[in-house]
Amino acid sequence: MSSSSLDDVRPGDVSPDGGARAGRWTVTGYAALHVLLFAPIVVTFVLVVVSSVLVVVWVGILLLAGLLPAMRGLAGLHRSMAGRVLGTPVPAPYLPLTGGPLADLRTRAADPMTWRDLLWMLWAMTFGFAVSLLAVVLFLAVVTLPIWWYGVVPLLRGRAAVDRAILTIGRTERLEQRVEALTASRAVVVDHSATELRRIERDLHDGPQARLAAVSLSLGLADDLFDSDPEAARRLINEARGTSSTALGELRDVVRGIHPPVLADRGLAGAVSALALDMAVPVELALDVPDRLPAPVESAVYFAVAECLANTAKHAGAAQSWVSIRHDGAVLRGEVGDDGRGGADLRGGTGLPGVAARLAAFDGTLSVSSPVGGPTVVTWEVPCASSSPKTTRS
């Protein structure tokens, strides 16, 4: 192991989060890179400010469309260096881009992190640059090498701490975003639950309730005909028996739509395997999940798989499909894909948005990749813990 490697693994070079911090040689290299990036930062900052003034004409809009991504690139590079110096990642909490040049420009311009990036550039051009330049000078000057040896790491960690404070949101802002996300997901889940209740009511009214009413009517007529026409009464009873069997089947379908019995009996792996057996196209399974997970999570993931496989059967025109679900002890990750025609859209219809709403109730996320021509891949993650043994199927 080299001396520089040894320098990076001293006890003091471990952050409170457990990550390895960069040592003096590495941080000196980062300081030199900060100095080299001084000119691009100044030029980018000036151009962004000028373009913002010129946004009243189309030239400013065109310039900002190219400059804002460049500014994010410079900020992202410094986030990476700050994370390495501090021994913990520095996230970039930008708003997600919606697609399209003008839409992305609006999103970037309205993003509070864009203004934080501008504030950081002011810091990086002034005090931040002075700190990094001092570290380089201490290294290059022979008489100050002892000062560099003991002082460069605290110096650059101080700069990295300021970079992190500006380039990412604080704990209070993260909690505010979390509250907003939970409020939005709760509203979606409440709407989805109300829709589900209306669907169940409609299914019961149009199916079993109507058939049970017919059974009651048939039995009443049969009772009236027992003495005068026993044969007709027998026919009515037989019809009532058939109708009651149909109503029982419809009731089972409604119950299965609320919580499938196979899920309660066999767990998530068994229930997904049963779904795959009912598919007309071959389904490759890779299931590595505990025997039992929290029942609400099992139900949400089961219906997510069921919806994705139903879309494959109805719309994809696929020859092959696959389902992968794995649990790492803290997060349940899943994927359903097919080799069909693609074109699935999370923003269209009600199926996939409904699945996303179910998962959001458990702090889960869902994403769809479905270019025209395929393949379609739906992935999700749901935080959940389980102490039961895993069941692996393929």
Rank of each mutant, 00 (worst) to 15 (best):
Q177Y: 06
S132I: 05
A356E: 08
Y150S: 14
T44W: 03
G158M: 10
A247P: 04
P296F: 06
R10V: 14
G351E: 06
A286G: 10
K390M: 09
P101E: 05
D227T: 12
P290Q: 04
A181Y: 11
E381A: 15
E250P: 01
R159L: 08
A20Y: 09
I169C: 02
E307N: 14
E381P: 03
D338M: 08
M121Y: 07
N311A: 03
A330P: 04
G343M: 05
G29D: 08
V301R: 00
A110F: 07
S5P: 02
L293V: 06
L332A: 04
V255M: 13
A210T: 13
V215P: 02
D288A: 14
S216H: 12
R326I: 08
R164N: 10
R198K: 14
R234H: 10
T183W: 10
G317D: 04
P101H: 05
L309H: 00
S216T: 14
A110P: 04
G87L: 03
A276E: 01
E231L: 12
T350P: 03
R333A: 08
V46R: 10
P93W: 04
G354N: 09
G66Q: 09
P11L: 11
H205E: 13
S2A: 12
A135L: 03
P91A: 07
R326Y: 08
S80N: 11
H259N: 04
V42R: 13
V153E: 04
L105G: 03
L64V: 11
A184I: 09
R266T: 15
V336Q: 00
G334S: 05
G334L: 00
L6S: 10
E381C: 11
V14I: 15
V215Y: 02
L236T: 02
P375A: 04
G267F: 00
P101S: 07
L212K: 05
L156V: 06
A361Q: 09
R347Q: 08
P389T: 09
G342A: 13
A161S: 14
V297R: 00
R252Y: 10
H327D: 11
Y94M: 10
W120C: 05
G170C: 09
V254M: 02
S185A: 15
A213N: 13
I147N: 01
V43Q: 07
A269T: 05
L62S: 07
L74I: 15
S4H: 11
L64Y: 06
